[in-house]
Design a protein around this nucleic acid. Sequence first.
DNA 1: CAGTATCCTGTCCGATACTG
DNA 2: CAGTATCGGACAGGATACTG
Lengths: 163, 163
Amino acid sequence: MQRTSFGQMPCPVARSLEKVGEWWSILILRDAFYGLTRFDQFQSSLGIAPNMLTRRLKALVGAGLLERRLYQQRPPRYEYMLTAMGRDFRPVLWTLAAWGSKHLAPEGQSIILIDSSSGAAIEPIVVDARTGRPLSEGVRVVAGPAADDRMRDRFAPRVAIEP
Amino acid sequence: MQRTSFGQMPCPVARSLEKVGEWWSILILRDAFYGLTRFDQFQSSLGIAPNMLTRRLKALVGAGLLERRLYQQRPPRYEYMLTAMGRDFRPVLWTLAAWGSKHLAPEGQSIILIDSSSGAAIEPIVVDARTGRPLSEGVRVVAGPAADDRMRDRFAPRVAIEP
DNA sequence: CAGTATCCTGTCCGATACTG
DNA sequence: CAGTATCGGACAGGATACTG
């Protein structure tokens, strides 16, 4: 066993990394969100070797984040579309981009998010969907209903959840 | 050059991956957020080989996400604390965990987030800090003030930003 | 254009042994 | 306890050539 099988872990973070843990995968998703769908678009955008692109694309399709679709019969041509699961990954990229912009961009922001209808700049933050309150220090992680013994042991105080 | 130097890219996502792109780094951060600070705590929690833990810890310290602090003189003992930059990474983990919980946990949630004062379950979503509106399809990425030619070329419509 | 097929290398990572 | 040192394997990733 060379690479730890994170997928065995019950932790959702570890499982996520199992699917998108490689560098290129996330960059490919980033480009997919920008609207790229075709092999050569990804290749020229990323400067990635074609065999690597094939591998990552296949992995992403296999993981259920992208879908390979024939868009032309002869010659056969495929495009890679985000699935619902893939589109759900956007919040991760938003927060990752926000973090990088804040801490790793001494020259200022190289990209910004805008609302496509109003054109206003957007500053993404994470809040609780119910209360609307920003998540900050007061957040704790506890074992959930499907936690196994290991997880329960780690996140000791299992609490009842009010709906 | 074996590994592409993502750090050269102006894209904040690529730059972020440059710092935390390895699997273990993110898992170490996850544990740090849970409160772990010491070498052996990380090791037993993660089941990671000690040399790898040393490398990842050093990388995270070098990247500015963790701080190594002497907490005992004789024998010298160190602990690893999150820096402000490291704490700012939490939203990424929240969204990553939310994505994994939703799409990769057929048996249900193994962990949940709760408000530590009220005990209520939290569902993290990403919204615009200004308007409070959830980010969804209507979000576009455009070149920012510090974009170079490559970025500007990619994210063509550079717009003025109202403060 | 949209890939596939080879070959090669760096390094991530695991296993183990050892030290103040 | 908190690491360092060394060894080796698997694979991510690069470079290049080739195909329908």
